[in-house]
């Protein structure tokens, strides 16, 4: 019990004094996961929108593939990305294993199906006649897609949040492809694992609290979005 209380107290001190190490790790985590989410947003939203708005043979299969991808275990992604990026692996020439770039790559792979799946659902959730209404207002195809994305902006924000939430709290892939190198590839989750194993419960708890705050903020947005009604 002592360890926990003491840990929480020290964690609080670390947080309110803006401890440079804790702050650095937090900022780096945001950068890596933010960039990965941004990349996944580009692919996920494009694919999600196309699949939602078009009909083609094998569409059901693609949708089921996307939904399976949403539950892709991060360690599996980490394992495969590591194998591909090994010096002697197929992508070894890139020389990015144990770099932030590798972490971004792995996290983008994890986030893309999540963003794709939620974008797909967001676009499908719009009334089907909405497309006709937009065309009837004189829109070009491009204008229609832009308006649809605007209409689905809140569920799409949910996609962003879910993708971001998925990767910032992920540890397996980050530690495997990043290596948890101090000041270089150390993020909130990998640092938490290491500090716990080192017995530095105060730092671990401080990092944990930051992760919890992120999780709370993300869920707040998601809940707000989910409870919002669409216009008639």
């Amino acid at each position: 019990m002592d360890i926990i209380l003491e840990g929480i107290l020290k964690a609080f001190i670390l947080l309110v004094t803006f401890d440079p190490e804790v702050l650095g790790i937090t900022w780096f985590s945001l950068k890596v996961s933010g960039t990965a989410t941004f990349i996944s947003l580009f692919f996920g939203m494009s694919v999600g929108t196309v699949v939602a708005l078009t009909q083609f043979p094998g569409r059901k299969f693609v949708v089921s593939l996307i939904n399976t991808g949403m539950a892709l275990p991060p360690v599996v992604v980490g394992l495969f990305v590591t194998i591909f990026l090994w010096r002697n692996g197929p992508l070894g020439f890139l020389e990015i294993l144990y770099t932030p770039a590798a972490m971004i790559l792995a996290q983008a792979i994890i986030a893309t199906p999540i963003v794709t799946g939620i974008s797909l659902a967001a676009m499908q959730q719009l009334p089907r006649k909405m497309r006709l209404q937009i065309l009837a207002l004189g829109a070009t195809r491009l204008q229609m897609v832009r308006i649809l994305i605007r209409e689905a902006r809140l569920p799409l924000l949910a996609a962003v949040m879910a993708g971001f939430g998925g990767v910032i709290s992920e540890v397996g892939a980050s530690i495997m492809v990043g290596g948890n190198i101090k000041g270089y590839t150390r993020v909130l989750t990998t640092a938490t694992v290491m500090e716990t194993s080192r017995g530095n419960f105060d730092i671990a708890i401080a990092l944990g609290i930051i992760l919890l705050l992120f999780a709370y903020a993300i869920n707040l947005v998601l809940t707000t979005v989910q409870q919002r009604e669409r216009p008639r």
Binding site: L30, K31, V32, G34, T35, T37, F38, P100, I104
Partner: peptide, 9 residues
């Protein structure tokens, strides 16, 4: 956050 990460990374 996204923009900052793009610039800083």
């Amino acid at each position: 956050v996204l923009l900052a990460s793009l610039v800083a990374l």
